[in-house]
């Protein structure tokens, strides 16, 4: 039996009667990197929130490793091996960077109900290894409330990796970073995906990142998928250009670009 890692069928969600996502279907294989792009407000984050159980879909099904996980809780999605990062970073601000990871690692090991022993001595090695991967080792002992935005994004990624996920959901993982750092971080993430056979679904507004790393690209507009396929095909799609990519002033060929001063 060759079943997909993730299979989504006619997923739909509306807020107070206003549809945000309508009938989205797609599949994601192990080791595949799939990008979900679309204008602001298209429903990308809403899709993510349904996939990890944050919000309940109004209709449709989600199959993860062949099992129906529609509307299961974020906790059970985590236990099944789904890690995610948030668009608006969600970290434990009263803890240091390392403690954030230690908490997640303890949770993964099922030890978080232990009422004794020092938590900040647990899983130090594993935490530091993850921090190395995302380039945060130097800031391990800083309070995470004082990190710059880009560093918070790295921390998000590291936390999402603590349960050795087989599916990684990343909502704008590189927002707030410099171009090269974006590329580095994405490259590191892609390497993890290939080596551990992890499926990745991510959104991003930086098209350089999307077209370099994604195996396939889906385009969402007003809650509906309007295009799906190989990056180069999607890039040339006229509708996608009109509603999302624009004239390519900002990403791509700089020399040709001109804004009237």
């Amino acid at each position: 039996m060759n079943q997909s890692l993730l299979r989504v069928e006619s997923l739909a969600k509306s807020y107070h009667g206003v549809p945000a996502v309508r009938g989205v279907s797609f599949t994601l294989e192990r080791g595949e990197i799939l990008a979900l792009i679309g204008p602001n407000g298209a429903g990308k984050s809403t899709c993510f929130n349904m996939l990890n159980g944050q919000i309940r879909p109004n209709a449709g099904t989600i199959l993860f490793e062949g099992q129906d996980v529609t509307a299961s809780s974020p906790r059970s999605m985590w236990r099944r091996g789904v890690g995610r990062t948030f668009q608006i970073t969600a970290t434990f601000t009263s803890m240091t960077v390392r403690e954030n990871l230690q908490t997640a690692l303890l949770s993964h090991a099922g030890q978080l109900s232990r009422p004794f022993g020092k938590a900040n001595r647990a899983f130090e090695v594993e935490a530091d290894a993850l921090l190395d991967r995302v380039g945060l080792r130097g800031q391990a002992d800083r309070s995470c409330g004082e990190l710059a935005y880009g560093d918070l994004k790295r921390l998000e990624l590291a936390v999402a990796l603590t349960n050795s996920p087989s599916l990684l959901l990343m909502d704008e993982p590189t927002a707030g970073m410099a171009p090269k750092e974006r590329a580095d971080l994405m490259r590191a993430t892609a390497a993890i995906a290939r080596e551990r056979n992890v499926g990745i679904l991510f959104t991003e507004h930086d098209m350089d990142i999307v077209f370099e790393h994604a195996d396939r690209v889906m385009v969402l507009n007003r809650g509906e998928l309007i295009a799906m396929g190989a990056p180069d095909v999607v890039r040339q799609d006229r509708q996608v250009r009109a509603i999302y990519l624009g004239e390519g002033l900002v990403h791509g060929d700089l020399a040709a670009a001109q804004v009237r001063h």
Binding site: P39, N40, H205, L245, V250, R260
Partner: peptide, 19 residues
Amino acid sequence: EPSEGLAPKIVEDMAHAIV
């Protein structure tokens, strides 16, 4: 960071607005 987190097309609109 006026362009952060915006769709490329909107970033273009933003550039026009700034000009």
